[in-house]
C-alpha cells in the first residue's frame, strides 16, 4: 500500500504480469501506519462503552430478509428508532414550490465498488491530498462509502452505505455559520459559498453525517499539468474554506439552461449527478421530489425507503432503500439491535 509494485512485474508471453513472481515474506519488526480512510467498520459500539438497555447496534442500515420483505413489503429494521414526525413549527415558511431535489440510494444494489467516489472526485475537482493527510483523517472526498461489518450469529454481515451531503431541509450547518456561507436554495439544495466562507468549521462539527470537508492547506497547485483535468464548471477551492457535495449543481444548471433554450420543463432523468451516472448497479437515483411521477418519488413512496438519523429532525433530502438479504433462515435473525 503506497509502495511501488513495479519491480514485481514480469514480462512473459507478450504481457506484463503481476502474478506468479517468486516472493518470500520476512518479518522486519517494523510497524507501518496504513493510510486508511475509516478507522472503524463496526456498526455496533464497543461493548465496554454500553449501559444496560442500550442498543449496541447503531440504527443506520435499514434491513430485512427476502421472505419478510415479500410478506410485508417493508423493512424489519428501520433506520430510525421509532421516530414520530412532529410536524413543522412554521409549515408555511420555506416551501419548495418549484423543484425539490432529492436522492435515493439503494443499499441492496450497492456493491461498494467506489465508482461513484471516483466520478465525484473527477467531476468536482476534489483535491487528492496524499497519504499523510489521509493518515490525519483529512480525506477530501465529497462522497464516501461507509462500510459496516456486523456479527450475525458468527457470520459477518457487510453493508455499504454511500454517504454524501444530505441537503437537509433543516440543515444544522446552515444555522451555525456566522457569515451565511452555507445557505439553502429554494430548490432544497444546501449551498456552500466558497468565497464567503471564513473557515470556522462550526458547520462541519454540527453535521451529524460529517460530510463536510475542510481545506486544511492550499491543496491546489498552479504548476501542475494535472490541472488540465480540472472541470472548468466547478470552482477550485482555496485554503481555509469548507466544501461538500453540491448535488452536482453545475449539472442541474446546465440542464436548466438547455431546457429553457428548448422551451420545455426539465424532465425526470435529465439531471444526472456524476455519482448516479457512473454507478454500474444503478443504486443512486436523483430527481425532483415534488414530481410524484419521478423515479426518486416512486422509490421514496416504496416500502424500503428510510432516512438516516431521522430522529434528529434535520429532514435530509437523501434517503436510502434498505438492504434485503436473501438468506433462508433469516426470518428470525435480522433483529440484532
Amino acid at each position: 500500500m503506497g509502495t511501488n509494485a513495479a519491480p514485481l512485474l514480469t514480462y512473459r508471453d507478450g504481457t506484463l504480469r503481476l502474478s506468479g513472481a517468486a516472493v518470500s515474506v520476512t518479518r522486519t519488526g517494523r510497524t507501518h501506519e496504513l493510510a486508511c480512510t475509516q478507522d472503524y467498520h463496526n456498526i455496533e459500539v464497543p461493548e465496554a462503552l454500553t449501559v444496560p438497555g442500550m442498543n449496541r447496534r447503531r440504527p443506520l442500515i435499514g434491513e430485512t430478509s427476502l421472505a419478510s420483505y415479500k410478506k410485508n413489503g417493508t423493512l424489519d429494521h428501520h433506520g430510525h428508532g421509532g421516530h414520530h414526525d412532529l410536524g413543522e413549527l412554521w409549515p408555511e415558511d420555506h416551501q419548495y414550490n418549484g423543484h425539490h431535489w432529492g436522492m435515493a440510494v439503494d443499499l441492496t444494489a450497492c456493491t461498494g465498488c467506489s465508482a461513484c467516489v471516483v466520478a465525484c472526485q473527477v467531476e468536482n475537482n476534489v483535491p487528492v491530498v496524499g497519504r499523510d493527510e489521509v493518515r490525519r483523517k483529512r480525506i477530501m472526498h465529497w462522497l464516501r462509502i461507509d462500510r459496516y461489518y456486523c456479527d450475525n450469529h458468527g457470520e459477518v454481515d457487510v453493508a455499504h452505505q454511500p454517504m454524501m451531503c444530505h441537503h437537509c431541509d433543516h440543515a444544522p450547518c446552515e444555522t451555525v455559520c456566522p457569515v451565511l456561507a452555507t445557505v439553502h436554495s429554494e430548490e432544497g439544495l444546501n449551498q456552500q459559498t466558497y468565497n464567503r466562507c471564513v473557515g470556522t468549521r462550526y458547520c462541519a462539527n454540527n453535521c451529524p453525517y460529517k460530510v463536510r470537508r475542510f481545506n486544511w492547506f492550499e491543496y491546489a497547485r498552479e504548476d501542475t499539468l494535472a490541472n488540465m483535468m480540472l472541470n472548468p464548471d466547478v470552482t477550485v477551492r482555496s485554503r481555509g474554506v469548507m466544501e461538500k457535495c453540491s448535488f452536482c449543481v453545475q449539472r442541474i444548471e446546465e440542464v436548466r439552461v438547455e431546457a429553457k433554450r428548448e422551451g420545455r420543463p426539465i424532465a425526470d432523468g435529465d439531471v444526472l449527478p456524476a455519482c448516479q451516472q457512473s454507478c454500474p448497479a444503478r443504486a443512486i437515483v436523483f430527481g425532483d421530489m415534488n414530481d410524484p411521477e419521478s423515479a426518486v418519488s416512486k422509490l421514496i413512496a416504496g416500502g424500503r425507503h428510510y432516512r438516516l438519523l431521522e430522529e434528529t429532525n434535520v429532514r435530509p433530502s437523501v434517503g436510502y432503500l434498505g438492504l434485503v438479504r436473501n438468506r433462508q433462515d433469516d426470518e428470525d435473525r435480522t433483529h440484532h439491535g
Binding site: 493527510e133 490525519r136 483523517k137 483529512r138 480525506i139 473557515g199 468549521r201 462550526y202 462541519a204 462539527n205 460529517k210 463536510r212 470537508r213 475542510f214 481545506n215 486544511w216 492547506f217 492550499e218 485554503r239 481555509g240
Partner: peptide
C-alpha cells in the same frame, strides 16, 4: 501555512 498544522481532522473540527 494553514490550520492543517494543527491536529484537527474531518471529525474533530475544534
Amino acid at each position: 501555512t494553514g490550520i492543517g498544522t494543527w491536529g484537527l481532522n474531518n471529525t474533530v473540527g475544534w
